[in-house]
Nucleic acid binder design. Structure first.
Lengths: 114, 114
DNA sequence: CGGAATCCAGCAGGATACTG
DNA sequence: CAGTATCCTGCTGGATTCCG
């Protein structure tokens, strides 16, 4: 009930923060934008990450509708992750933010500030 | 010491996540992109936010070098926040993400999924 | 191989109260 | 007006272990 109380939480700015808040979300989306990946392939690219954590992050992103989980019914199991249409639409903007991140890193270095 | 162990944490993807992780960062950056604002003005735009929380978020962003805090030595105090050059460079990318956020919200509604 | 179930620790965000 | 100082709480990420 009470659908009527539209708050700041419903605005796109906040929504984006919510959807991309996961510590590894950006990284995962980036890797999946390059190619569809199996669970373990993804994990290898995110080396410090335990599979439990990765699984949670993937579930989150899947829940938000950004990625698609495709399971092949076979033994041993094979699961592939890829971007949904929604996720794919996000990529160009993300890439442009990453370019900024690159500049930011250089700036930080030049400021001698970790 | 040991500057040599470059990890995934040093890549732009992860850096962006770190810098923008704050729950209100995106919102704050957006509002400041429209105009320089005083502390209270900003707080009014983020209605559910206590001043303590806002202060912390602002300190974060200032620490990352995204915003600039200008204090006018007078009574009562007056402090203005604005984007730094670094912060301003980020805005176009952010705006394009927000457009996506808008689409995302519509999509969510159409899926009847909050 | 991919994942679910627990458990745990850290920390970020928020509430409240005090300061110059 | 614009903060700090505490304190508290919930969540999120991570470690570990078990399952199909």
């Amino acid at each position: 009930m009470s659908e009527s109380n539209l708050t700041i939480q419903d605005c796109p700015y906040f929504t984006v923060q919510k959807v991309l808040a996961g510590k590894w979300s950006l990284l995962i989306l980036h890797f999946l934008s390059e190619s569809t990946l199996r669970f373990n392939e993804l994990q290898r690219k995110l080396d410090n990450l335990t599979h439990a954590t990765l699984a949670k992050q993937l579930k989150q992103l899947e829940g938000f509708g950004l990625i698609i989980r495709k399971e092949y019914p076979q033994v041993p199991p094979k699961v592939e992750y890829s971007l949904s249409d929604l996720g794919r639409k996000l990529i160009p903007s993300l890439e442009s933010i990453f370019v900024w991140g690159d500049e930011y890193l250089k700036y930080s270095v030049s400021k001698n500030k970790n």
